[in-house]
Computed example of a mutant assay.
Amino acid sequence: MTTALAPHTAEPRARFLDLAAAEWLKLWSLRSTGWSLLVAALAVLAFNAGKAWDNVRYWPDEAGYAEKFIAEGIPLMHAFTTDAGTVMMLATGAFGALAVTGEYSSGLIRTTFAAVPARRSVMTAKVCVVAAVVTVFGVIVAVASFASTQAILSTKGAGVSLDHPGAVRVIVASALLAPVAALVGAALGTLIRHGAGAVVANVVLLLLLPVVLDDGRHWSAVLAHTMPYEAWLRLVDIPYGGPGIVHPWSAGGAWTVYVVWALAAAAVAVTAVHRRDQ
């Protein structure tokens, strides 16, 4: 008597939405996720609001100073200061790096790849989730910073509204700085696979390297203009192009730097995980 074997049915491939949902759950299952974003948001808001408050506190008793203040573009400079931009890049870059390295340090990545052998699909889902979360974070922080700083400056008649020339560009450029830094962090996390190492590499690449490069020599200026931090400075510097700028460049070039870095970082994160062992 022969026993008929049941036909083998292959398991269906995981749908991308299922992978994205799994990455979403893994990300928010950590208490540190919400707290780290909250602390980063408060730090950025504190730097921006503090700068605006300093101006109000030491406001000169001079006729027509508020009009001069607005004409020189200072309200938009205070809407998102360089200190706040640095904190934004530090926080979101570390967030992106740890979102990847956390699975390697805990060993969860082995379980993930055992359940879903399609590594590139898993990493694509992770990158999309991280980018979406940090983009929303960036938008909220940038809008809140603009609203709070202009409300403070308005007490002296020096605040500007959203329809002021260049205001929207400052908000959008500052908001998108967050996902760009997070994606670079995720790419470095995929390559290094160690939390502290990835965070340090992120700081060196995104913040220290632009400091070494300057605008004095043409080759150095060109290299500096390829960095996300310099691109952000170009986009938020509304009265850009005045005297003292040795090698000026366009806002379109700065937006291009944003796009290239984001796409390149996402590509590195997805391809690197496919070509290396667990």
Rank of each mutant, 00 (worst) to 15 (best):
G166T: 13
G166M: 14
A167F: 06
V168T: 07
V170H: 07
I171N: 04
I171W: 06
A173P: 10
A173F: 08
L177C: 11
L177G: 08
A178I: 09
A178Y: 01
A178M: 03
P179D: 04
P179S: 12
P179G: 07
V180W: 02
V180D: 02
A181W: 01
A182R: 03
A182F: 02
V184C: 11
G185M: 00
G185D: 03
G185H: 03
L188D: 00
L188Y: 07
L188F: 03
G189T: 02
T190F: 05
T190C: 09
L191M: 06
A196D: 06
G197R: 06
A198W: 00
A198S: 09
V199W: 04
V199D: 00
N202G: 08
V203E: 03
V203D: 04
V204P: 02
L206I: 04
L206C: 02
L207Y: 10
V211K: 02
L213R: 02
L213C: 06
L213I: 02
D214W: 13
D214H: 13
G216R: 08
G216F: 10
G216D: 10
G216K: 10
H218F: 14
H218M: 14
W219C: 06
W219T: 03
W219A: 14
S220H: 07
S220R: 04
S220L: 08
A221N: 11
A221I: 10
V222E: 04
V222R: 09
A224F: 07
M227R: 10
Y229T: 10
Y229C: 05
Y229I: 11
Y229S: 13
Y229M: 15
A231P: 00
A231C: 11
W232M: 12
L233D: 12
R234W: 13
V236K: 10
V236R: 12
I238K: 07
I238R: 02
P239G: 07
Y240Q: 14
G242I: 13
G242N: 12
P243V: 15
P243D: 12
P243E: 14
I245S: 10
I245Q: 15
V246A: 11
H247D: 06
H247F: 15
